[in-house]
Amino acid sequence: MAKIIFQKPKSLKEKIFHYCPGCGHSIVHRLMAEVIDEMGIQGITIGVPPAGCAVLAYNYFDVDMIESPHGRAPAMASGIKRMLPDRMVFCYQGDGDLAAIGLAESFHAANRGENITVIFINNAVYGMTGGQMAPTTLLNQKTTTSLAGRQTLLDGYPVKVSELFSQLEGSAYIERCMVNSPAFVNKTKKAIRKAFECQKAELGFSMVEILSACPTNWKMNTIDSCQWMDDVMSKVFPPGVFKDVTKATKKAAEVPS
């Protein structure tokens, strides 16, 4: 019998993604589904998609999902998780959803140490509404509401969510990844797995920020988008692990009394 080396994850439905060619959402959806399959948690996972290009995520993930108003996913997920502590609960959010309108909800969910996992897609623009400036838009980056490029005097600075949230004592695991090369895609998958494992171990709030291409609104082709992420975007948003309480607990255990 032929050995299967590649197939659709069980946790994805038989549906074609509506995302634009080259969009990072599709890659991350697949990675999450693979992790859910590998952990065997499809039946106990509940997801909360955002208002954003991924608003239809429930058409793709074959797990229980509930829509939330724009930005409120972490609040909704908190409610779900508190009632059902043994389920795996995740939010899937864009940068406008998480870091603008929903900053209060995400910040306080992290600060309360809600035992949920947030998958945070940072594409430096508002995708769904047509490419307006996001809180994560880079300085001088042109968008439809920052026509001359983002200016600090008028629009402030790109928000570094991972750095910020890692300061909160309620957060357990925070990592920033990219999905613009096979090696980075593999790394992102490991981070998603780790975040879900943290939730399983009831360590508190976990979040993976994923730098993700929006070729449509960046007005670039896919290859240039990947290059731009390497050359420019990742310089402002450096990938890395910003918080990992599993390390801290291990270290503490190693210290001789």
Binding site: H18, Y19, C20, P21, C53, M128, T129, G130, T216
Partner: peptide, 8 residues
């Protein structure tokens, strides 16, 4: 307009 334009 809007979502109709996604996918090009």
């Amino acid at each position: 307009y809007g979502a109709e334009m996604r996918g090009g």
